[in-house]
Amino acid sequence: MTVGTRIGVLALQGAFAAHRAVLDRIGAQSSEVRTPDDLDDVDALVLPGGESTTMSMLLESSLLFEPVGKRIADGMPVLGTCAGMILLAREVTDGRDDQRSFAALDIGVQRNAYGRQVDSFETELSIRGSDAPFHAVFIRAPRIVRTGDDVEVLAEHAGTPVLVRSMSVMAASFHPELTDDDRIHRLFIEQVRTTR
């Protein structure tokens, strides 16, 4: 890890503490981002799972929407999981009309497309370039319904992409922060290191 590199975790709502615990475990410095000042202190950003409608509203009221969008456009590495992936997607279906996204990743996602909580599940995935299966937890997960030409698919589940990357933007429809396997966070940290 480059000295002084700090990963921000958007902490408006959701599983931000779980992401920080993983970053801690792999020796990455992290801090919570709730205001524009907090954002100035970080080199990369994790958008956690939670409720994307709530986060979209709080991004506006906390005056974070424009500055986060600008940082991502300027190349700040970002990892979005579940609701965080929705915030990064170019198109969102079954969202609220006033729901905004950063449109930083050329994918289309459908909210809650894997069903309600009784349909939430865990399963094993194979991740490109990695031998061991990855245990993945899907919670009321969004489904990727379209991927652009520049989007690299790193993992699929039942023929649908679930882990994707394009330039310095990475997104998962599942929750790598809820298991002990930290390979996806390590992959993100590698990306942060090469970007700097």
Partner: peptide, 14 residues
């Protein structure tokens, strides 16, 4: 239990 507690985790800070 992991899937059940997972949703509780997503509701944090809300």
């Amino acid at each position: 239990m992991r899937v059940q507690r997972g949703l509780a985790e997503m509701l944090k800070g809300g």
